[in-house]
């Protein structure tokens, strides 16, 4: 084991119940998709090692309960986060409308040193469903929201079909690493 401490990046995945948070994480880490994931209770995380510009990092991705009622527990889990991933379902308007709440609630509970600079990333998931015909949130609408929130990077994904999942998480890792370096300085 190396004596040098490997960089650990903590990433929190938030979003309404059933938007596919667990599925995205498991697709990224285990390359698996299951229809049978249960609703996440409490919190859990998965880890993945990856290399960013010659630097080996461990991405610790936290999965949380999507029901609003469990939001108050965030305090225990959000501490020390390096990046926050917001997820919504492009087929469910409510999940998009909730983004403001998730965004603000995260900042409130995680209480990062510089909230304005804290990295967020938005994923619009389930673009595979019904060939995109049941979609209710347009890409433009999502991008506008991202622009209004300080140019949050945006990805349209499908955990089921493994569309842009790796890209999204690489972006997440980079943002988290940048944030971590920022804080080291």
């Amino acid at each position: 084991m190396s004596t040098r401490r490997r960089t650990l990046l903590k990433v929190i995945v938030l979003g309404d119940s059933g938007v596919g948070k667990t599925s995205l994480m498991n697709q990224y880490v285990h390359k698996k998709f299951s229809q049978q994931y249960k609703a996440t209770i409490g919190a859990d995380f998965v880890t993945k090692e990856l290399q960013i510009d010659d630097k080996l990092v461990t991405l610790q991705i936290w999965d949380t309960a999507g029901q609003e009622r469990f939001q108050s527990l965030g305090v225990a889990f959000y501490r020390g986060a390096d990046c926050c991933v917001l997820v919504y379902d492009v087929n469910v308007m409510k999940s998009f409308d909730s983004l403001d709440n998730w965004h603000d609630e995260f900042l409130k509970q995680a209480n990062p040193p510089d909230p304005k600079a804290f990295p967020f990333i938005l994923l619009g998931n389930k673009i595979d469903i019904d060939g995109g015909n049941s979609r209710v949130v347009s890409e433009k609408k999502a991008r506008d929201w991202c622009a209004s929130r300080g140019n949050i990077p945006y990805f349209e994904t499908s955990a089921k079909e493994n569309i842009r999942v790796d890209d999204a998480f690489l972006c997440i890792a980079k943002a988290a690493l940048a944030n971590e370096r920022e804080q080291d300085m």
């Binding site: 119940s17 059933g18 229809q35 049978q36 249960k38 609703a39 469910v92 409510k94």
Partner: peptide, 12 residues
């Protein structure tokens, strides 16, 4: 909506 989402992933 919540119940709908959860029952299909209950002890399947």
């Amino acid at each position: 909506g919540l119940i709908d989402k959860d029952v299909v992933r209950t002890d399947r």
